[in-house]
Write a protein that binds this DNA or RNA. Structure first.
Lengths: 360, 360
DNA sequence: ATGAAAGCGCTAACAT
DNA sequence: ATGTTAGCGCTTTCAT
């Protein structure tokens, strides 16, 4: 870890490089041009009240004519805070986080902060580096979205700056955590399917994916509670399209063959959908299908997947609110918020066919 | 614009807030603990060679025991450069940019820089603010991905820091531009369809979307060149699923009815695909379909869309390379790079049916 | 209402 | 090989 922190600057960076010919104007340039002290310029820039109208105008005019732009680096150094919150997204390819980011951004702006996004591209090492970068940049707080970081690494970071985690139920009391109730989501899927009359309801698991184990727990407990425990069957999967396809292939050969499947995320569900149709069956006539996450994919008319929705935007908003609270009140304790998911019924679920054994 | 720049700090920020009880350790703390001067610590931190092994060890030990982490803010202030490049993504919901970001990140890292991502959420004002933030943060360079900013705003920024634009053919000589050749892409789609034997080839336009007008130009020129100019027909659209659906509805009623359609992006193509099937026709039997962008959507087995691929990752890499070049050599001139797209044939295109008029 | 001065944490000459 | 010194551009007392 220390190696990531120290001595990591490329050598050539130490040699002098071509320099900008003219430096950008500073507060001193503005002060001179306006014929005032630099403190006065600083006051005007920060919108302090106690400044006469005449000097305010003079300063603004000078600043504008010079094209002056406050240097946030210098400001942050003296204020010892940057007013920006770093956000580490494990995987920007996962559209799930885009909406969480909307929530984060809105809440940050409301508090006078801005977010700076970095990504680790699913690589824990790169993520750790991104974290270190944000820490060195002295971000006032850090949000981890779908982080694949080791808890110890996160705990260490949480000791120097407030940290919030979204999208995964991170096992750490020192960080704010905002998640959707994946257990409840799994139950919701089963209850919907059982309510339609399905008995033989299988699941395609999400493996190591965030929330996967909770979703499976919800599936299993609901099956048991509804007296369907003996019909429960979980196929391995991994949150991918291919995983969904393979899971379905095995399920289609099972006896009794399930009449409904709960896939642990939308992508796997789409893979399942495709494999079912390729095998000559129809959805939902021959088999019902429920996904998870309510991504844009599920909403496509061409797919119209029944799925479980996570309040993504709200997750982002709450996480940022908790984080800002701790930034401004360092003694406040971190909290864990679990939000209820909600079923979105579309076109891939229907009652099972009368005949118990569907055929092509 | 000046209003975005000055006096925008919320008033409460000026009051004192709860402070961290213990400040993070500085280079001076490390120096004291190690019994050396702070310059020596600085040297060790930056990995300079001319340091004796013994003092290096002492410094590292001291730094580690204190949990010291270099302050990039202070470092940037004195070096007058931050070694980070700001990236403004117009819309993080658009997965197209995720891969461009990969390329940007890789090339930045190779040059010893890091990227900081911000977003304007499709709102030009928010984008302008993000730009201002990055400028105040003194990013060494800025990349605009799918920017909706006014050319004057961009030109102004380009005067104080190198700027690169990706994904849209920005009309500005002062910025590096890296784009896919949308005209050629449009031609590719038509050539493929015509090669299969289609004559009546329609297009669903992309409206104001980035690259849309070039794609249409390519479509039109290829149709003319192939002697199909009279069969050309362009329906309005807007890069959305709904736009694709509506475009197809009108096309299905046209006489003669086209046997192939080129949609200006994948999302519109998926909308078209859905509407075609809903109307009782089959793809590609009754109608062939080509999209644009080769997004993850197109690659889904359930969709398997023939489409035009943009070298997204390469676009990112080249843009960053050009930008870094100008950062390190301020006198270098900005350049414009146009990359060739490439057709990806999947399952939505086939020769037209023998009967000239397909029926349900 | 305004200015002078100190200092944020660090790097970069310039000594030695 | 190491230390001393002078800033980087800004905010913030403290005077006036």
């Amino acid at each position: 870890m220390s190696s990531a922190r120290f001595g990591s600057i490329p050598e050539d960076r130490q040699k002098t490089r071509d320099r900008q010919l003219s430096r950008p104007p500073t507060i001193v340039d503005v002060a001179e041009r306006a014929g005032v002290s630099k403190s006065l310029v600083s006051r005007v820039m920060r919108g302090e009240r106690a400044v006469s109208a005449s000097s305010r105008e003079a300063v603004i005019a000078a600043a504008e004519s010079l094209g002056y732009r406050p240097n946030a680096v210098a400001r942050s150094l003296v204020q010892r805070r940057t007013f920006n919150v770093g956000v580490i997204i494990s995987d920007l390819h996962n559209i799930f986080f885009a909406e969480v980011l909307d929530g984060l951004g809105v809440a940050a702006a409301a508090g006078g902060y801005r977010i700076l996004i970095t990504t680790g591209n699913r690589d824990p090492d790169a993520e750790a580096q991104a974290l270190e970068q944000l820490l060195q940049l002295r971000a006032d707080g850090i949000v981890l979205a779908g982080a694949r970081l080791q808890p110890e690494v996160v705990a260490a970071a949480a000791r120097s700056v407030p940290v919030a985690v979204v999208g995964s139920n991170f096992p750490l009391a020192e960080v704010d955590v905002v998640v959707n109730d994946d257990v409840r989501g799994g139950e919701l899927a089963v209850e919907h399917l059982a309510g339609l009359g399905h008995v033989c309801i299988a699941m395609i698991d999400g493996g190591e994916g965030a929330g996967a184990s909770d979703r499976r727990a919800g599936y299993e407990s609901a099956m048991r509670r509804l007296g369907l425990g003996r019909q429960a069957r979980v196929e391995p999967g991994d949150f991918t399209e291919a995983g969904g396809r393979e899971g379905i292939r095995r399920l289609l050969e099972a006896r009794p063959r399930p009449t409904a499947v709960f896939a642990s995320n939308d992508l796997a569900a789409v893979g399942a959908l495709n494999a079912i149709e390729e095998a000559g069956y129809q959805v939902p006539r021959d088999m019902s299908l429920v996904g998870y996450d309510n991504t844009a994919l599920a909403a496509l008319r061409h797919i119209s997947l029944t799925t479980v929705n996570q309040p993504r935007r709200q997750i982002g908003e709450l996480a940022m609110a908790s984080l800002l609270r701790r930034i401004e009140h360092p003694t406040a304790r971190a909290r864990r918020q679990v939000l209820p998911p909600e079923l979105v019924v579309r076109a891939t679920t229907a009652p099972p066919r009368a005949s118990s054994s569907p055929s092509p």
